[in-house]
């Protein structure tokens, strides 16, 4: 299901990640079942899917941690199977678990990574200080990382991926388990990376995160792509915008339905004392509809112009919510974040 005219024109640039037909099985469990991915230089690809969809397996293959059973992948011009050493020189990985050594200070963590990229003593140390500054960790830089908050650890882990200024970055669920504020902070930092020219593959199970950050989104489930497009394109797939009104009393339900039917593109959806109508024309249509409702004397308790979220997309594509069974995030935290964004 490809509907990305826009993303096709964009990929006219150089594809810096190119994977074809990736398959990985663990015994009877198929983690990846023929996944293709392309990421043009200087863009963010969001790999979106529920737990166990195969996101981390895909990242592990592209970062040379895991060999696929079949399929090929070229990352930054090097083949992951034939020259994994070259790939490792050109990538940065920030994993799901904030892989920082908690007994080392922030500075020591970054300096160690710099040495292991063979930057040399002087450059490693300078780079460590620079990144601590940039990720707002300068004051905490000489404290052991075990004293850091969850958000600080994530920032340190992300900084670790940037030590050698690799052209390609892999961020595996960079904000899983973070509180909404830390998440927003981290998003700003990730956007900044791409402004500086990095190419980024980001996995997430947060619809909103893909919506906020990714130029292009691949939705996967059971190890294969089930949809591909920009956030807007995916939302269009599950229908456009709609007006949702809820009323103070049953008495004016008939009036409300009669008015909204005039604006509706495709019937009405009535539930209790609320009416939903798919529309086009956005805020302008909403204004006109409100005027008409007011003219008929319909009293409203709540009104809104709703656009489908990627949650809706996911639900309609897979038949189940993305967040099911996640240990890292409580449902309430997720809905809070979604609420904020609206």
């Amino acid at each position: 299901m490809k509907l990305s005219t826009e993303s096709l024109t964009r990929s006219a640039g150089t594809d810096i990640i190119e994977a074809h037909g990736l398959v990985k099985k663990y015994g009877d469990v198929i983690a990846l079942n023929g996944l293709d991915l392309t990421v043009p230089e200087g863009t963010i690809l969001g790999l979106l899917g529920p737990n166990g969809a195969g996101k981390t397996t895909a990242v592990n293959i592209l970062t040379t941690l895991l060999e696929p059973d079949s399929g090929t992948a070229i990352v930054a011009g090097a083949d992951v199977a034939a020259s994994p050493g070259e790939v490792r020189k050109r990538i940065g990985l920030s994993g799901q678990y904030a892989a920082v050594d908690e007994h080392l200070t922030g500075f020591e963590n970054l300096d160690m990574i710099g040495r292991l990229y063979h930057l040399g003593k002087k450059r490693s140390m300078a780079r460590a200080r620079e990144l601590l500054e940039r990720f707002d960790l300068a004051d905490a830089g000489d404290r052991p990382a075990k004293t850091y908050s969850g958000g600080m650890r994530r920032r340190l882990d992300l900084a670790g991926a940037l030590v050698a200024e690799p052209p390609v970055l892999f961020l595996d669920e960079p904000t899983a388990g973070l509180d909404p504020r830390s998440r927003t902070e981290l998003w700003a930092m990730i956007r900044d990376l791409v402004k500086r020219g990095s190419t980024l593959l980001l996995t997430t199970q947060y619809m909103e995160e893909a919506d906020q950050l990714a130029d292009d989104i691949v939705v996967i489930d059971h190890g294969r792509e089930i949809a591909h497009g920009t956030a807007d394109e995916l939302k269009t797939m599950v229908g456009g915008e709609r007006i949702e009104v809820s009323l103070h009393s049953e008495a004016s339900m008939e009036d409300a339905q009669r008015v909204l039917a005039r604006f509706s593109m495709d019937g009405l959806y009535v539930e209790g004392r609320s009416v939903t109508a798919p529309i086009s024309g956005g805020a302008q249509t909403l204004t006109e509809a409100l005027r008409a409702l007011d003219f008929e004397g319909v009293k409203l308790r709540d009104v809104g112009l709703r656009r489908p979220t990627l949650d809706d997309v996911f639900l309609s594509l897979t038949g189940h919510m993305a967040e099911q069974g996640s240990k890292e995030t409580s449902g309430s935290e997720q809905s809070e974040t979604m609420e904020e964004a609206r």
Partner: peptide, 13 residues
């Protein structure tokens, strides 16, 4: 367990 080995393995070391 902490994923530090994964980080090392992704480095050109």
């Amino acid at each position: 367990q902490k994923g530090i080995i994964d980080r090392f393995r992704s480095l050109p070391m």
